[in-house]
Nucleic acid binder design. Sequence first.
DNA 1: ATCCTTCGTCGAACCGGTTCGATGACCGAG
DNA 2: CTCGGTCATCGAACCGGTTCGACGAAGGAT
Lengths: 337, 337
Amino acid sequence: MNIGEIARRAGVSRSTVSYALSGKRPVSAATVQRINDVIAELGYRPNASARALAEGRTRTLGLVVPPASRRLTDVQLGFVGSVVDAAAAHDLDVLLSPSGGDHDRSFERIVTGRRVDGVILMEILLADPRVERLSQASLPFVTIGHVEHPGASWWVDVDYGGLITRCVHHLADLGHEEVVLINRSAELVAAGYGPALRSTTGFLEATAARGLRARTVCCADEAAAGLACFEQIRAQWPAVTAAVTINEAALPGVQRALHRAGLEVPRDFSLTGVIAERLAEDFHPPLTAADVPATELGRLAVDLLLAQIADGGAEPRHALLEPPISLRSSTGARPRG
Amino acid sequence: MNIGEIARRAGVSRSTVSYALSGKRPVSAATVQRINDVIAELGYRPNASARALAEGRTRTLGLVVPPASRRLTDVQLGFVGSVVDAAAAHDLDVLLSPSGGDHDRSFERIVTGRRVDGVILMEILLADPRVERLSQASLPFVTIGHVEHPGASWWVDVDYGGLITRCVHHLADLGHEEVVLINRSAELVAAGYGPALRSTTGFLEATAARGLRARTVCCADEAAAGLACFEQIRAQWPAVTAAVTINEAALPGVQRALHRAGLEVPRDFSLTGVIAERLAEDFHPPLTAADVPATELGRLAVDLLLAQIADGGAEPRHALLEPPISLRSSTGARPRG
DNA sequence: ATCCTTCGTCGAACCGGTTCGATGACCGAG
DNA sequence: CTCGGTCATCGAACCGGTTCGACGAAGGAT
């Protein structure tokens, strides 16, 4: 069931079948009809490997994801889903590569094996060796998240710094005077994980600008850590009346700690941050937060990647999204006394 | 940078380079050394499409996942991660195909385009058209979850019926007399989703065997639905003192409803079921539940698929896992009065 | 009737690997 | 010295598509 068999049964040459399918040269209507009949009867589809070899492109995108050992957050899961859906909308397949910060075998296969036309890299670090590797392999790629010198490459990202800034202003407007940033894990910060670093920067600048006392803690991506972390905050800085967070996984623990401490949100304590929409709405009460537009980000990443593949010499393009803060009900005026 | 270039620079023929790399025929040590030097210098890796075309296999597995519009549960996410990791351990890549119950373009590309050596299908229905399609295409495949007539195909699954049965016995041993099953959505049940149906069967048989009054409700996969569902249970069947569930996504809502009703777990109400380990431990208090061994299931699925690819004529094999129930602290004796 | 286009189709080369049969060099045995 | 047998390597065919140049037939202009 290859193109030669189709050609034989339709009584034409292989090239005519190819042209009839691609439309790249005119073929008479009668011949097209005959070929289509044979194809429908045999259920033929061109062999993807052969086509990729001849055309020099695979119609496949690579998606580099964190290995399963690191559990995906809701936001990351949203990226994966939307990238896959957006690619499918262009009739492209997605090849998954689980890769840590170092390039492992799977990543190398993707990069040098010509298995994909381009790569989307998520969860990158400010100085990421994989970005370097892709550049020198001259394989088109787009990162979700941006590196230290963002002018030279293609990326999409959420403006964590800006969003955290707006969260702080929101709390300042409500009269809070001492606030804490619950960041992600110390390991991620140490490794140079952009969102964690930019959140910190934005938080410190905004609190300074508004004259607030600022506290920051790192917290592992687990409910248990969130609980411990919040109890430590209460013990260490009892005057803190509001928290800003980008750590989704810690939220259930924070909620339990609030409950255990007898604090009611937002009457006794305000909570906000950058959180996947679903989690913000599942919280009790629903969180006033910047919803990460994971779906749009994934779609944009695919669009940029396709543009880059179509025109390799084009100037790098970026998109820095700053979604609005959804006012739900987890923030309120600073409690008095 | 193809095999011909390597051959030219090493002063040998293309076939010698190929044999040196694959080891399928002896090549002198000196020649191998020379070839390896050139390869290392140029950073050569064989073109995956060309190799796939020549060998007749792609070294790639297909993974059919629900489209992103349906949010993945924690258990499903666990499957995806473990399948990808297990495949990577065998130096195989994973191609993702988002597909609903019907076969769409992405699924068809996977099946007929010879893009993959085999397929893993998750979230299948009792009568799933995709299973039919893969069978007639004679493409090796393994399902996570099993179809109505399980003898004819390869699959791995968790024994939902058996686990729910054991949950019911556990509650009966604790003295509960009226219990409810919180199932997944009515749509899934109507579509013939195996875990939902087998849970119901197991629940009804076990409660009948132990002489318990049995109630069942369907609940959409959302926190809000879980809350509404639980409040309806309290209103409609006030004598219910324990719930069994397979609906992870509804848990936050159930928790909120329990809290709102002033019920303390397990003193006033017992809760158990089949739940991803992480969620069971994030619950307050941690849930006594059967932890779905998603990681093992994914690994097993890959193992079975590789066995099937290696020997297409082999008898279909299955694995029905029945993980132990982890006794945590969400179940207790029936409250008196 | 002759020449020039245009249209539809064909054959061959090519993409970059793998694999099979053949060939030549070298060796030890007779 | 010749013969038989390894061993290492080579050339060619093949996998299944795409694409380019060429070619024959039909049609229009002169």
